[in-house]
Design a protein around this nucleic acid. Sequence first.
DNA 1: ATGGTTGAATATCAA
Length: 263
Amino acid sequence: MRIATWNVNSIRARVDRVIAFLERHDVDVLAIQETKCRDDQFPHLPFEAAGYEVAHVGLNQWNGVAIASRVGLQDTEIGFDGMPGWGDPVGAEARAISAVVGGVRVASLYVPNGRSLDDPHMAYKLDWLGRLAEYAGGRLSTAPDEPVVLMGDWNIAPEDEDVWSMAFYENKTHVSEPERAAFRAVLDAGFSDVTRAHTPGPGTYTYWDYTRLSFPKRQGMRIDFALGSPTFAARVTDAFIDRDERKGKGASDHAPVIVDLAD
DNA sequence: ATGGTTGAATATCAA
């Protein structure tokens, strides 16, 4: 089974490219982030025509996460128990959805950006990740053998080699110690990064800012990850980043991350 | 070209 994750930065602007990607790489399941649309705006028809069913949650033009699968899609859960909210009034955002696909519980996650180190959104980001670690860890202690993968845009570069320049990111988000500690807390809850061993750095990135000619200058960040439970991680045979998807007109600012799983 | 790009409630906000 082949499972991928991709922050598409608007599914309506990118749907042709996403379908072509699924077919080109023979992908069974895709966790999608930043659909940037409401449920009633999601372009279901192209997915159905390509043989995929989709579970999506989108409340407005921001965030929005989905799972597309051609190997079944059951037991969809929106958000997770304890997920913090945002806004005025405070409410749940469309940042987490999970479903059982091909016997694996896949979660598509869009971790809050943080905006800047002293922004209230950073406290929200850390709280959100802390609650996620708590929820996922608790679930794992109840069902230690369940194959689970937490995949998506984590908005964190966990290692120095995951950014093109640590000097550039001094006092910026994505590399701060509290963010990295929040990421490690998910690992400490029993999950492991199943992609890094197959996509070694340095210079291995999944995101390049649209500005500053970041992509041609190879000035990127690795912030998209798949964190697997023990039984999921044991089945991973390969992973790769499709850097070609960042090329050309109409590209998302993120490249997809693809994970291969033994049957 | 040198403070840059993209996408969404088309007016700013978010990334």
